[in-house]
Design a protein around this nucleic acid. Structure first.
Lengths: 343, 343
DNA sequence: GTTAGCACTCTACATCAATGAGTGCTAATA
DNA sequence: TATTAGCACTCATTGATGTAGAGTGCTAAC
């Protein structure tokens, strides 16, 4: 495969380009400390690396730029893990600061810190609601036709949903219903709710409430309408600073995509546990063809509940971001496990 | 003051520039239908209009561009109200579509429609929470130290807040407290809560709960911590399409400002009832110096609860946007009044 | 196998002239 | 007296031209 010298050159080219955003030439390479051979030699090696598809020219007589394949190889084989600086660690630890018990707030803050630390855009997915346990259900009638159903989970997450009441129902019936629901469903995981409602609760309701059929299905639907996990963003406008996005059309399509959210939801959700790196067109989305997305999952106990992600240009500081994400996801997992996994 | 001919010329210049985004010259003006005199005459008039500060040149031999003063005069005196098209009306009415009872959803949808109709950025402020009436309070303990307080208003708005419990409290005390709170506070307007808690509720609580002092103040603070009215955006990225924002730095500072939200909150909140137009630097914010902001307030009954706003370039279709906003704010007021103002 | 040297390529930048849309001014016109 | 035609002038835009600099590929020498 590649000789040690080729690997060295590839690595130096990529790291130089990540720094400078400028094509790297043989002469400027030969001046580097790490490199002890002449520019002509480098040119020969570069020519081979280009033939192998790891680097590219922007025009016939330009310096070289890493290709997606080059980045991929770099990420898979050449990456030197980078220790975090003290102040980075400090900022990172500040997620713990203050007494935050609300999961969403922790996660929102995580996105903010991550974007500040990287100067890229941070996206945090989660936490998955369906693995949470139901703490309490409340139903508050607003008028004769509608009521608000409120669901509280053990993680402090509150959800509410408007439901339509059958016209015949009266207050005492609602009260009974709420009691039954809480009695039977408290402690159940959110994903089991629907099942339990039909299997356990329906029978009970039928004994106390006229017209229970419509109500049961309304309830079942509204309590479990799979509300997707929320996305939290940090540093949405950070990409404006990257020279590759000084082009109006590129930054427009990128910002539009960020605004849509949906696309990122799909993109991030599908990642398996651990650290994942998607480079440029590996993301399969044209607005992201100059971007890389690095994701890291986090968990509560053994349950993977969400994902941290950093979106940057393909010319991204992979090594730093990967270190950051890996540390952060571990810390976050530890924090959340401590807070929410009751023995 | 200005002659009729000068007014005509000013109007045509502005409307042409709004259309084309290009400086308007005397010769191209003279070719317009509305204009029956020669380019030389126009040049003379233009010269006067420039001296008066209504129009400007971008360089010594360029056509003219409206100044902020010009737009201001146009908005105040020359605007011809523009009837809405049928499909515009239709889209506008679609806010009513479906049974939406949740105020926030209505308002969010309003922002979306407004941005689609104008191709500018829409911002909707409100609804003000403090004028809503309390429907119910619920307190759900999560563990021995923390609980979640949930507040439901008559408009279907649900708020929740983490509170810290005094270490000595037990379940039955919490239950008593919730009963007292609901008993005393239901139907009170949100802005009165704090007062009432100290004046009416504190005494009662003291009779039933040990250590009530700390709890009362925690409650009072967390129930009334003036959560500002939310901002809803539509078409955040629409400004990318405006040629005046093809400059990276301009669009960057604008998007950053939109991302911050806070600035717009201040800006929009302060507007008096009715339609208001702020042109360019009238907004006092450098990121908005090429923008105009048109606001329209909406109400529930006689209470002004929020504001619709459209942010566009100074070269904005004032007439169309004003018509839209005015119709929309009336419709929205009517809708909300019907839905939420119970006799 | 490595390197020095050289011809060649391409970008970036500056200069220059031509074009065209615009202006201001003046003198003729109605 | 108000309007207009005519003209000299200005400036942005465009395309052509030239040059400097950074880069490459190739060949021949080490």
């Amino acid at each position: 495969m590649l000789t040690d010298r080729q690997l060295l050159i590839l690595q130096v080219i990529i790291e130089d380009f990540i720094q400078s955003a400028q094509p790297v030439g043989s002469r400027s390479l030969s001046k580097k400390e790490e490199i002890s051979f002449s520019s002509a030699t480098i040119r020969n090696e570069m020519s081979d690396l280009e033939e192998l598809g790891f680097i590219e020219k922007t025009h016939t007589s330009s310096g070289r730029v890493p290709s997606e394949l080059g980045y991929r190889y770099y990420v898979d084989h050449l990456l030197s893990p980078q220790a975090l600086k003290k102040n980075e660690m400090q900022l990172l630890k500040s997620v713990y600061a203050g007494r935050i018990y609300e999961l969403e707030k922790v996660v929102q803050k995580a996105a903010k810190i991550l974007s500040e630390l990287t100067n890229y855009t941070a996206i945090v997915l989660g936490p998955k609601v369906k693995d949470h346990k139901l703490k309490k259900i409340e139903i508050v009638p607003l008028n004769s036709e509608t009521a608000i159903a409120i669901i509280i989970t053990d993680t402090g997450h509150v959800e509410n949903q408007l439901i339509t009441l059958p016209s015949s129902i009266d207050m005492s019936e609602i009260e009974k219903m709420v009691n039954i629901l809480n009695d039977r469903l408290t402690g159940a995981s959110m994903s089991d709710l629907k099942d339990k409602i039909y299997k356990e609760v329906a029978v009970l309701l039928s004994q106390h409430i006229r017209n229970y059929g419509a109500l049961v299905s309304t309830l079942a639907e509204s309590l479990t309408s799979t509300r997707p996990e929320k996305l939290f963003f940090g540093g949405k406008t950070n990409m404006f600073r990257q020279p590759e996005f000084h082009d109006i059309h590129k930054i427009h399509s990128l910002m539009s995509m960020i605004e849509q959210e949906q696309g990122f939801y799909e993109l991030i959700k599908q990642n398996p546990a651990g650290i994942n790196v998607k480079i440029g067109r590996e993301n399969q989305i044209s607005a992201l063809e100059d971007c890389s997305l690095i994701t890291a999952t986090y968990s509560i106990g053994a349950d993977q509940v969400g994902t941290l992600a950093v979106l940057g240009p393909t010319r991204m500081e992979y090594s730093r971001v990967i270190s950051l994400l890996s540390t952060f996801s571990n810390d976050l997992t530890a924090l959340l496990t401590k807070l929410y996994q009751k023995p």
